[in-house]
Amino acid sequence: MDKPVQTLKIVCIIPARGGSKGVLQKNIRPLAGKPLITHTIGQVVHAQHDIDVYVSTDDPAIADIATQSGSRVIMRPESLSGDTATSESALVHALSKIEQVEDVDYVVFLQCTSVFRSSADIDGALSLIIQEQCDSLLSVVPSHRFLWRVGDKGAESINYDFTNRPRRQDMDRQYQENGSIYIFKPWVLSQLNNRLGGKIALYPMDERSAIDIDTELDFKVAELLLLHSASE
């Protein structure tokens, strides 16, 4: 029998290593008046679902700010903190530490470089995966782009027939992964070493949610949008 929603154990893991190269100390750099990672932690803390939030990091400065912002911290080893380390490796490590203490029903995986989500988005995504009885979920944005690739015989259209170009509104509904919200049952990660698997749900978000903060320009654009939203 499925557990009642109020008894489900839900944890959120936010990987945030200290060795960012594009923008130094990116994860704790101030954005619209507070450290970047604090935006994501706050979204989880203020969600309606009962979620324990953990930051996985190798950096004491990130750990301090995460703790001050309301998160627990899992320090990860250097072997999982280099440029070639995957998010899945950090998730496996963090979840193994958490499951030493308690069983987990759902893991919410958030990247702090995706700030354009709300607590309501996190709640909505959790409600969807629970109601649809799915094993994993990813957030997406609607896509109406005509995609191409270069094949052996030259350029090829991928998601439409260029000889019979459709109107955008007549195309099959398609979605682009935005990297903002992932949710999965622990078995998906342990058995597949992947954030996605089993029956997968899609949680649509607005186009702004696809902004990923990775460069100086991204920081400037995100700050303008956040300050504009705050003034509305």
Rank of each mutant, 00 (worst) to 15 (best):
L126S: 00
R173H: 15
A63Q: 08
D52K: 01
L217F: 12
R149K: 10
L24M: 13
I130P: 00
I41H: 07
S180H: 00
R149T: 10
Q169L: 12
D2Y: 14
T57H: 03
S89F: 02
S180N: 03
I130V: 14
V92P: 00
S143Q: 14
N27V: 02
L225G: 02
S89V: 06
G22V: 05
S79F: 07
Y106M: 04
G33R: 08
D152F: 14
L138A: 04
I158S: 00
L80I: 11
R168L: 15
D50T: 13
F109Y: 11
Y160R: 06
I158R: 00
S139H: 09
I213N: 05
V108T: 06
T215S: 13
R168D: 09
I51T: 10
I28E: 01
E88Y: 08
Q68M: 13
Q176R: 06
P30Y: 12
D135E: 14
E132N: 09
R76H: 11
A120L: 12
K97M: 14
A94K: 08
D50Q: 13
D58T: 07
A63Y: 03
P15N: 14
V73A: 04
L8V: 14
F116N: 09
S71A: 15
F162S: 11
D161A: 11
A61H: 05
K220M: 11
V141T: 15
S143M: 12
Q100F: 06
P204A: 10
F162L: 14
Q68S: 10
V55E: 07
D103M: 09
I62Q: 09
M205V: 03
P186K: 08
N27S: 11
L24W: 07
V115S: 03
Y54N: 00
G33Q: 07
V108K: 07
T113A: 13
A210W: 07
D105N: 09
P166V: 11
D214Y: 12
G42Q: 15
S96M: 09
Q133M: 08
G42W: 07
G82S: 08
A94H: 08
D170F: 08
L224Y: 10
Q48R: 13
D52G: 02
M1Q: 03
T84I: 12
Q176F: 04
L217M: 11
S96A: 13
R168Q: 06
Y106G: 02
V44W: 00
R117P: 00
I62F: 06
N193W: 07
I122D: 02
H49I: 15
H93K: 06
I130S: 02
F219C: 09
D170Y: 09
K220G: 04
E78G: 04
L126I: 09
G124T: 13
L31S: 05
V55Y: 02
P166E: 15
T40M: 00
N164A: 12
